[in-house]
Design a protein around this nucleic acid. Structure first.
Lengths: 365, 365
DNA sequence: GTGAAAGCGCTAACAC
DNA sequence: GTGTTAGCGCTTTCAC
């Protein structure tokens, strides 16, 4: 055993005085191995510190032990949270996780092409990236398990939230506080990657506004890059309007933080004379006291990872389209509209409107 | 070609009417292939949309195309930034990246054991996780290229900063502003994972203090979990001291943000009567106007990835121990000490002290 | 220059 | 139950 390159299954077999088949059976906990034999093999495995080659196993099985996760803009906190939810689930099952970062349509296609080729991944999770029908068909044809987060596709397991409802909740929250001019700062959906959640949240915003008898004013809506910096600029624009809003709903916390910072820098006091609500509930939001619509970010990753494992085990996932709960978290950044800002008298708590928020806003400590 | 499972090298060879060896040579751009042959093979490859199996290639070569990155607490912004720097470099070279998250010594050891086994990774990057000498020896013995970020080991390529100097710079910055009682909020090094950067930054803090004739007061130093929440609590403790500090140096921006938030919540005005400086310069720091010691986070990832590629190519990396530059970024969160807080008269800009900051503080826009 | 064939380390189908 | 053997898809000598 002196110059041995690396211990392989044959060496274990020889040492345990059995055939490689038996070792393989022990490795894969096949029931048809006598207990004494199994014990002997396991002893040798431990003694030799043998670890099966994933490459060889994968090649032989026709599928690697690796799961790929395709994410847009890895550095976004919400994306990281989803990743952080998914990773431990796979690690526990002994899967390697390969992370594919996508910041352009070309990158998306390159990764997808690669992933679709055989021997690349045992399963794929796609986060917040739209898939065409033909892409989905390719996955089906390749027999490659696929699960989606934050996006949907017909016949594909997806874990999502009701973004329209989220938009409604956020807007209703501000309306309840007496705000009547509410700005919207969102992510330009046309980044080529194909996520539409901002669009849906905006729809919810518009719905609540209009069903409350308020006018939808496109001037109050700004769409752009999903960064705090751009959101800052957009907020400044909104505040310089002839009739500026008294509150802003940002379709992500990152943007809400940019908005809040700018609002304060321009001399407003949050929430005394300006309110901000975001979306996601990323970690910094709690520190900064940002009101927001919380969605289970880590939970979505964890849940989807579990579903992928089920898929891998040949099971069929229960509700193909899995809806996760959302709720308004009321923190310091939102408060009653300043006096005179609304044309209606401000009522103590809840305003009589046609549409009210279903979930009561939860007050964070 | 109707029921073909998946196109492999044999099919390409057959279609191009050459041997598999030749296809393989084309794939690996061997010079010893006639140009007309090469062209014909490439044409077939394109037409059949052939993609070599990474598993088979890896098994045959004895090494996979995969690079592993071991990180502590994947959700930390600084960690994500380093990852984001490294990933594109590897993707460009066609490597898959597997991310291993470590939150405990057991997890670290499990991952390291797995990675050390053959056929797991072509190279490994370890971020902010201490490696024992015997671990390093294992890597060397396995012939597995290894590179470190934010930690060092004898004989191993590492990309680091001068943390002691960073601690000095931050402390000197506050001293320059007239602060005389400066709190320190840092990461408890004894998390079992083995990073020592806080310890070194604290050493720098102490050095500057003492060489400025100030007493090092252990009461002003709080070490704990690296979270904004814990830093908040520690800050509250510091402020409730009989002789509270007028400024805090936090050894990470995450903690600095927690400190800043708490300081303001307790009624102080930053920077009017309290100053905060952090470390790292993560993205939110710019939004929040946090003064900090910037280190090239993404740069460290990118640089290390490049060095690993060099290692993979059999080259030898230039300075084994690569020191990245750091600098103080002066933003809104730090300003002159409040009157009467210091026993010495406050001077306009720079105070005559034995030790001054080498790099002039850069003023952020 | 190019084809043929021997592995790489494992799984699974097939005998005994 | 367990040994034997034929692949999995590629790289890499070794002849020609």
């Amino acid at each position: 055993l002196a110059f041995t390159r690396h211990v392989n299954i044959a060496m274990v077999a020889a040492e345990a005085e059995v055939g490689v088949g038996t070792v393989s059976r022990v490795l894969n906990s096949s029931p048809s191995v006598r207990d004494t034999t199994r014990r002997r093999v396991l002893e040798v495995i431990a003694r030799l510190n043998y670890q099966p080659s994933r490459l060889a196993t994968g090649l032989s099985r026709g599928v690697p032990d690796t799961v790929a996760i395709l994410v847009p803009y890895l550095s976004r906190p919400s994306v990281v949270a989803r990743l952080a939810g998914a990773i431990p689930v796979f690690e526990e099952r002994g899967h390697d996780i390969i992370v594919c970062n996508v910041e352009s349509p070309e990158q998306r296609d390159r990764h997808l092409d690669a992933l679709l080729s055989k021997h690349r991944a045992a399963a794929v999770i796609v986060v917040s990236i739209g898939l065409t029908a033909s892409r989905v068909a390719e996955f089906r044809r390749a027999g490659l398990p696929l699960a989606l987060i934050d996006v949907e596709a017909p016949g594909v397991a997806s874990t999502i939230i009701d973004d329209v409802e989220g938009g409604r909740l956020a807007t209703a929250h501000l309306l309840d506080l007496g705000h009547r001019r509410i700005g919207f700062v969102g992510h330009e959906s046309d980044d080529g990657i194909g996520n539409r959640s901002t669009k849906r949240r905006l729809a919810g915003y518009r719905q609540v506004l209009e069903s409350s008898g308020l006018e939808y004013d496109p001037d109050l809506v700004r769409l752009g890059e999903l960064t705090a910096r751009v959101a800052s600029d957009q907020t400044a624009e909104l505040l310089s309007l002839q009739a500026p809003p008294t509150a802003i709903f940002a379709s992500s916390d990152t943007q809400a933080i940019g908005a809040m910072t700018t609002v304060e820098r321009l001399g407003y006091r949050v929430p005394d004379n300006f309110s901000v609500i975001g979306f996601d509930d990323i970690e910094p939001s709690a520190w900064l006291g940002l009101s927001t619509v919380r969605q289970p970010l880590e939970g979505s990753g964890q849940e989807t990872a579990r579903r992928v494992c089920a898929l891998l085990d040949g099971e069929t996932v229960r509700p193909l389209r899995q809806l996760l709960p959302i709720e308004v978290i009321h923190r310091r950044s939102s408060g009653p509209a300043p006096n005179g800002a609304s044309r209606e008298p401000r009522l103590p708590k809840s305003l009589p409107r046609k549409r009210t928020s279903r979930s009561p806003a939860r007050v964070a400590k």
